[in-house]
Nucleic acid binder design. Structure first.
Length: 253
DNA sequence: ATGGCAGAAGCATTCTGA
């Protein structure tokens, strides 16, 4: 089973850049999207149906054109959960889950900390998300959390760890949170197979950052440890260029 | 230390991103 996670930075803009053709080629069974920046009625959902994605769920933010996540699946889920049930984590459309026979797949868009108010919100989200997942693992022991965590884990996950140590996304407190979150029961699927530096999933649009590979690795597919021995592959797909992020992928048996 | 680019709303410019 192939699972992809992709922050598309606006699904409509991504489609104008060939996202649908890419999706047909990549052909995942399940794709988790973040930053769809659209309401369901603004999205050409029939195009996804044509590609075999018959189980599509879109969770938009209350604010038009902002944030929002989705999961598209070729496989019928047993159950779908929209949001966490906690208001401050749900009003911006950041969390969606599909339960399949022997594991669940979540699409997560963790807030960014662009200013001090948003950073406070991000930390609150992180704290409550950690508790939410800690409880959820009792109910759903086999869990795959795909998404944009807006946090680089380690120094090798960013092109310039010195310059960015006071920038949200690479703050010591954010990195420590992600470190504990992972160590408390998850495997970072990409790092399970690849320990090398210079692999990123987001680049600024500015100053030729992508061409110079000055990026950050902030998109992850974390799987619970009980799924580790079922991982067959994990890749970053930097050739897909419909967004300032690129997709990440796993194959799991 | 600063700026640089892009998507979307809604129609000029503002907000947001990380």
């Amino acid at each position: 089973m192939k699972i992809i996670s992709y922050n598309v930075n606006g699904i409509r803009a991504a489609i104008t850049k060939g996202f649908l053709e890419w999706l047909e080629q990549a052909n995942p069974d399940v794709i988790c999207l973040q930053e769809i920046k659209a309401l369901e009625e603004q999205i050409p959902v029939a195009e996804f149906e044509k590609l075999g994605y018959h189980y599509n769920y879109w969770f938009s933010a209350q604010k038009k054109g902002y944030s929002g996540v989705a999961i598209l699946s070729k496989i019928k889920p047993k159950n779908v959960v929209i949001g966490t049930g906690i208001e401050h984590m749900d009003f911006e459309g950041r969390n969606l889950r599909m339960d399949f026979e022997d594991f669940s797949v979540m699409s997560l868009y963790l807030p960014s900390g662009t200013n001090s108010a948003r950073l406070d919100h991000k930390f609150m989200y992180m704290d409550d998300f950690q508790k939410y997942i800690s409880d959820l693992k009792n109910e759903i022991p086999h869990l795959i959390i795909c998404g944009d965590y807006n946090i680089c884990h380690e120094a090798i996950d960013i092109h310039d760890p010195v310059r960015n140590k006071t920038v949200s996304g690479f703050l010591p407190e954010e990195r420590a949170w992600l470190d504990v979150f992972i160590k408390d029961g998850f495997v970072d699927s990409f790092r399970h197979f690849n320990k090398n530096p210079h692999h990123y999933t987001w680049w600024s649009y500015r100053a030729g950052a992508r061409g110079n590979n000055k990026g950050w690795r902030i998109d992850y597919i974390l799987v619970t440890k009980n799924l580790e021995n079922r991982l067959e592959r994990a890749l970053i797909l930097p050739d897909a260029k419909h967004s300032d992020h690129c997709p990440v992928m796993i194959e799991i048996n």
